[in-house]
């Protein structure tokens, strides 16, 4: 089926099967930042924004992008880089496989919460698994990033 949607502020028409999930459609479209770490909606690696809300692209059927606005990390490179610089300075990206989904969630949090506490930060980011870093460095980076800005 054809899906008219907006991806990273560009109106596009995508072709997808009925049972195709958005993560695959986006990858096929060339957005290779989309990573998948599981097949049970558990890891958060595939997080994109749908109408600004962080959402699992692996569990969202592609047709539901119809008429909505999808944002991937490719579409917010400037802000992503700002945060990534803090993250990288902390050494808190290791294999980096979880990073795009993690950064999309961090940026969504920044838009959604005002001056979050540490507890609120941890809560908001819990759905992003990371097997490498042990989370502490990511937390230090997020705290630095939010205070800086």
């Amino acid at each position: 089926m054809q899906i008219e949607t907006t991806i990273n502020n560009k109106k596009v028409t995508l072709e997808a099967a009925n049972d195709e999930f958005l993560a695959d459609t986006l990858r096929n479209y060339g957005l290779l930042s989309i990573r998948q770490g599981c097949d049970t909606s558990c890891c958060g690696l595939c997080t994109v924004w749908i109408d600004g809300k962080p959402t699992l692209s692996c569990s969202t059927l592609a047709f539901r992008a119809q008429g909505r606005s999808i944002t991937t990390i490719e579409g917010v490179q400037q802000e992503a880089k700002k945060f990534a610089e803090v993250l990288v300075a902390e050494g808190a990206e290791q294999c980096g496989f979880c990073s795009p989904g993690f950064i999309m969630t961090v940026l969504a949090m920044k838009n959604e919460l005002n001056h979050p506490t540490e507890e609120e930060i941890v809560h908001y980011l819990t759905g992003n698994l990371c097997r490498c870093t042990g989370y502490m460095g990511q937390l230090r980076a997020v705290k630095k990033y939010l205070e800086v800005k």
Binding site: S41, C42, G44, T55, L56, T105, T126, G127
Partner: peptide, 12 residues
């Protein structure tokens, strides 16, 4: 519900 997996999951 707020402990279930994560924000992006609960948005689904």
């Amino acid at each position: 519900v707020n402990n279930i997996i994560g924000v992006q999951f609960r948005n689904v």
